[in-house]
């Protein structure tokens, strides 16, 4: 299982957002896209999901070009967890059930209902099943959104800033939750974030964007004080705690 992105560029009219982006992700990996706000992280995710049409470039999954996939096939391959989840008068069960949409023709089948139940149990969301999504807290809402993505049974999950707008404790909880489900379900994850320390906690691979271009791509070792200075324009110190690297901004 391998996804390759080759020389991807995107522009809104004359406004260049992404410039010649290339990287690859493999089974079980969690790729974190890091960069300042407005650098094109969301745009990149949307290009991967074919929601936006890139100006040029090739995206393949197991050497098959993604634009040969139909809408439904693509939905079975890749799930998307948007940054702001619109909450409506749909309850949690219905929201998670929505993940079965690519498999539903007219009405959900028994199988769809049972799978939804399994996911809800697996993620311990039972107590919320009949609550409307607009009554949930930010962290619960993110979990429900991830549950829906898992219910899609896709091989890849794209997440746009899943930890933004959460309390610190909830950020850590959700990070561990993400690590847990990705290693249990062997799902490839591509996650955009701007918090370096959380990124280091979750990610196995890192793609750092600066001014529409790739600044660096690789494993943990690429994240350095120099990189933080260049990309975010802040000085930092490093602290080792239990063999984990943390950055403290000056």
């Amino acid at each position: 299982m391998k996804m390759d992105v080759n020389d991807l560029s995107f522009a809104y009219g004359k406004d260049h957002i992404l410039n010649s982006i290339s990287f690859s992700v493999e089974e079980g990996e969690r790729l974190i896209i890091i960069g300042n706000n407005g650098v094109g992280k969301t745009t990149l995710l949307k290009c991967l999901n074919q929601m936006l049409e890139p100006k040029k470039g090739l995206i393949t999954f197991n050497d098959i070009n993604l634009n040969t996939y139909s809408h439904k096939e693509l939905a079975k391959l890749m799930a998307y967890v948007p940054q702001s989840i619109s909450y409506t008068e749909q309850n949690v069960f219905e929201t998670v059930l929505l993940g079965r949409k690519p498999y539903i023709n007219f009405q959900p089948s028994i199988n769809d209902y049972l799978k939804t139940e399994t996911i809800i149990n697996q993620l311990s969301l039972q107590h919320l099943a009949l609550k409307n999504t607009n009554q949930l807290s930010g962290g619960e809402r993110q979990k429900v959104a991830i549950a829906r993505a898992l219910n899609q049974e896709s091989k890849i999950i794209l997440m746009d800033e899943p930890t933004a707008n959460l309390d610190i404790k909830k950020q850590l909880e959700l990070s561990d939750f993400i690590i847990d489900i990705s290693s249990k379900n062997k799902i490839m994850m591509i996650i955009s974030m701007h918090d370096i320390n959380l990124a280091l906690r979750i990610g196995t691979k890192f793609l750092v964007l600066k001014e529409s271009n790739i600044y660096a791509f690789g494993d943990k070792s690429i994240i350095t004080k120099q990189l933080i200075n260049d990309v975010f324009n802040v000085n930092s110190k490093t602290v080792y705690d239990n063999d984990t690297l943390h950055f403290i901004y000056e």
Partner: peptide, 11 residues
């Protein structure tokens, strides 16, 4: 009704 982007990603 859960959002256009989401609907697109659901096929």
């Amino acid at each position: 009704s859960s959002g256009e982007d989401l609907a697109t990603s659901l096929g």
